[in-house]
Design a protein around this nucleic acid. Structure first.
Length: 555
RNA sequence: GCGCCUGUAGCUCAGUCGGAUAGAGCAACCGCCUUCUAAGCGGUAGGCCGCAGGUUCGAUUCCUGCCAGGCGCGCCA
């Protein structure tokens, strides 16, 4: 991160200063920062703001009068050519040509770090996602989080946060026991338990276990089922880990639920919550009074028969996260778990935390998959599932990741396998990757022609074409997009930005010849445009990197 | 019944603190390769932003009520 501030920031600061100078006159609260939008209509300049309209009401002054005040204050700034007041009081700012060169210089000096910022500097974030049971393959719902969670982790890190990516393994409890029983019955040719696991992968796993450990069948119950459970667990976890690795999703911590009950950690957690005064006993069970903080009902931690309710692990796990020093705990959950939001927030409050700050629960809507014009129903137990692995086989890692990331998680999405498999430009990932490959081709040719490009070849005063202006402006937006994506936890913004940037580049390319034609002599304009190409490639590549999608040099 | 999410072009979907003429891709139609990657570019057509109120200078955006779809509401995990 370079120490320089962007041009938007410096103009924003200048406007704030002007307004503060007139505070007596305005007599109202002023915002901390001014948002400068890039107007769609180019007649509206390079940046526009509706701040005068927004301040009109609280100050009791006509918006145009406030706009005039700002215009006068900005008049002498070197980087600004023109300030117009339009319509009811919009302020349109046109930048000096040379000032746009700053963006190019900054991309060149920051390189791979361009776009990184510090809006989340100093925050320690625990990012938990996927957290599938180790009782089967990862399916489509997990795959959405595998892509989005990983991208969010990259975006948060780029915004300056210290991020720990964590996968919570439900390695104890009823589901694990059912898994063991399913494997054992499969190996012994018995009917599966009613509510057990029925997928064909169970037969494969049990065969693999028996082949590797033939002596297992000599065990008596309950050791027999436990042995199947434990061997099956290890194989399934290995499988999940290798699939995620191939998908480009990495975790810092694989957190075992079982470990919460090692030593006296769980007892410690209960003591902690008890000390805060929200634990009570009723009907022989131990409860947490989450209704103190807006939950629908109180939650059982230890059941009356002494066994542990699921919420016991939830609460101990949260306390573990906080005691390990994380300020913000992000949970990425499926829509079928949205009922958890209330109890998790209440749990944080019971622990004396701020539920609006220390906990951030993201709810991802369902992913449907269409094939041959029909919806493929997902049912893990029945075994008719599309797994992460199968999806990648069909469409490839880049297309799968990109498609899953480019929609906000609260949007229920439909993936059409036939379209994704067709490898046409119906998939925007190709559009973006193609722009990158196209630039790399141009730069290879530039090198052959001996055209130099780089920090001493910016020549901003020559880049006066409308397409060049658009491209430079779009490049300058990247840091703000990354910061916004991080603060709002919306990595899809990076994908949308990169698509737009690719479009702006393609239009530039169509209208502005980069390299000399025929025997034309290479000029400074050729060098300046080649430099602009190289920084565009850098930004596309940086954007795709945040999504975990490759930026090919040739296609 | 209560709660959360969704409803925007034929299809899949964007739309930031409420802003200027509501956008993209695909599909349809018409153009553009004698030199940098046509996986591209330009153009045409396509809209009751689910419906009805409210707040305001201004609402796709905020509030209320309805309609439709999805998902939840256990001492299950």
């Amino acid at each position: 991160m370079s120490a320089e501030i962007s041009i938007q920031d410096s103009i924003s600061a200048a406007i704030i200063e002007i307004l503060q100078g007139a505070k007596g006159e305005l007599n109202c609260d002023l915002p901390e920062a001014i948002t400068l939008d890039r107007p769609k209509n180019r007649d509206h300049g390079d940046y526009a703001t509706g701040i005068a309209l927004a301040l009109s009401k609280p100050s009791g002054k006509p918006p145009r009068e406030i706009a005039e005040l700002i215009k006068a204050g900005l008049a002498n700034r070197l980087e600004i050519t023109k300030v117009d007041i339009a319509g009811p009081g919009f302020i349109n700012i046109t930048l000096a040509k040379a000032s746009q060169g700053g963006v190019i210089a900054k991309i060149l000096s920051d390189g791979k770090k361009f776009g990184h910022g510090k809006v989340l500097d100093g925050k320690s974030i625990n990012l938990e996602f996927i957290s599938a049971n180790p009782t089967g393959p990862l399916h489509l719902g997990h795959t959405r989080w595998a892509a989005v969670g990983d991208a969010l982790g990259r975006v948060l890190s780029a915004a300056g946060a210290k991020v720990t990516r964590e996968f919570y393994i439900n390695d104890r409890g009823v589901q694990m026991d059912l898994f063991g029983a399913s494997l054992r019955t499969s190996a012994q040719g018995e009917p599966r338990p009613e509510d057990g696991y029925h997928g064909a992968y169970i037969d494969d796993l049990s065969k693999e276990i028996v082949a590797a450990h033939p002596e297992i069948l000599k065990l008596a119950e309950p050791e027999l089922t436990h042995a199947f459970r434990d061997y099956g667990y290890q194989l399934q976890l290995d499988q999940q880990q290798s699939v995620l690795n191939a998908f480009g999703t990495k975790f810092d911590v694989w957190f075992s639920e079982k470990s919460l009950y090692e030593g006296n950690f769980f007892a410690h957690c209960q003591e902690v919550l008890k000390a805060k005064g929200h634990v009570f006993d009723l009907d022989g069970a131990t409860w947490l009074r989450t209704t103190d903080f807006g939950d629908d009902k109180d939650r059982v931690m230890v059941k009356s028969d002494g066994s542990l309710a699921y919420f016991a692990s939830d609460s101990a796990y949260y306390i573990s996260k906080r005691e390990r020093g994380f300020d913000i705990c992000i949970y990425m959950l499926g829509a079928d778990h949205h009922g958890y939001v209330g109890r998790l927030k209440a749990l944080a409050a019971c622990n004396g935390d701020d539920p609006e700050y220390n906990i951030d629960v993201m709810i991802g809507q369902m992913v449907k998959i269409m094939e041959g014009g029909e919806e493929v129903k997902l049912s893990k137990r029945a075994g008719t599932i599309i797994t992460l692995e199968e999806l990648v086989e069909k469409v490839g890692v880049d297309a799968a990741r990109y498609t899953l990331i480019r929609y906000p998680v609260e949007t229920p999405m439909v993936m059409d396998v036939d379209i994704l498999r067709s490898r046409t430009n119906e998939n925007p990932v190709y559009y973006v990757q193609y722009a990158h490959a196209r630039i790399c081709g141009v730069l290879r040719n530039a090198a052959e022609l001996g055209i130099k490009y780089g920090s001493d070849q910016i020549h901003p005063e020559l880049l006066v074409h409308e397409r060049e202006r658009e491209l430079i402006g779009q490049l300058g937006e990247f840091p703000r997009v990354v910061a916004g994506a991080a603060e709002l936890r919306e990595p899809h913004r990076v994908a949308r930005y990169v698509e737009e940037l690719a479009g702006v580049y393609h239009r530039f390319y169509a209208d502005c010849r980069v390299l000399p034609l025929g025997d034309e002599t290479p000029s400074e304009l050729h060098a300046a445009r080649a430099t602009l190409c190289s920084v565009t490639a850098q930004v596309i590549s940086n954007g795709l990197e945040l999504l975990g999608v490759s930026a090919p040099e040739k296609m």
